[in-house]
């Protein structure tokens, strides 16, 4: 269970982006968070991904409260949440090849020995052909790069997946391929999903339920 309980967060304590937001994602569930640009969806996604510490409220992940950390959330909890960002260009280290990008989380967590085997699973799962794996981010398209970023998010087999406008930069066919890759992963692992975006049609078709962002808070829920 991923639970945000009356969370207040922002980049300046005096003017938070949102106050008192609550959202729950049950195990295995997929939730779409809809809202207009600038309403605070991405900040909420960063809080859910344990990348941004809330100023107030509780964030509970599988029964463990992870609200109060000093510099960053504990590693074992961070790695339980996979994140895909909106813009693959800024989300990929320009010096790494796509192959390095995909297995970087394994290397960072001391599981170097598993890297080759996991790469062989991940690349086809996200639709990356072997000839693309040796290329660097500036040598591939946005869609190919976003596939690699999704692969990186899945590398550690996270129990939670946060997709912050993952398909906003992509064409319809790549969007469909990425959504299919996420769903295949979820079917295999039973992972939960929080998908943030403003494509109402896509999120309603993709997710078990959607939450509409209204009056500065995620409010209306639709089955």
């Amino acid at each position: 269970m991923l639970e945000l309980d009356t969370v207040t967060a922002g980049y300046d304590r005096r003017t938070p982006v949102f106050r008192g937001a609550s959202l729950t994602v049950a195990p295995g569930e997929s939730v779409g968070l809809l809202g207009p640009s600038g309403c605070g969806k991405s900040t909420l996604a960063r809080v859910a991904a344990l990348l941004h510490r809330p100023d107030a409220g509780r964030l509970v992940l599988d029964g463990t409260e992870v609200t109060a950390w000093r510099h960053r959330a504990p590693r074992e909890l961070r790695t339980a949440v996979g994140v895909v960002f909106q813009q693959p260009r800024t989300a990929a280290d320009p010096r790494l090849t796509l192959a390095d990008l995909l297995v970087e989380p394994l290397r960072a967590t001391g599981r170097r020995a598993e890297a080759a085997a996991r790469l062989a699973e991940l690349a086809p799962a996200v639709g990356l052909t072997p000839d693309l794996l040796g290329r660097r981010p500036h040598e591939v398209s946005d869609g190919q790069l976003q596939r690699a970023c999704l692969g990186r998010a899945l590398a550690l087999r996270p129990r939670w997946l946060v997709c912050d406008e993952m398909t906003a930069m992509l064409d319809a066919s790549t969007t469909a391929a990425l959504v299919a890759a996420v769903e295949t992963y979820r079917e295999e692992t039973g992972a939960s999903l929080l998908a943030v975006g403003h494509d109402r049609l896509l999120l309603r078709r993709w997710c078990d339920r959607t939450v509409e962002w209204q009056d500065c808070l995620p409010a209306e829920e639709r089955p």
Partner: peptide, 19 residues
């Protein structure tokens, strides 16, 4: 975001700095 992605992927401060 690529640094945040590294942090999310379990990189320590030292690894983020060096890598």
């Amino acid at each position: 975001p690529f640094v945040e992605a590294a942090i999310s992927g379990g990189a320590t401060r030292w690894r983020v700095a060096v890598r």
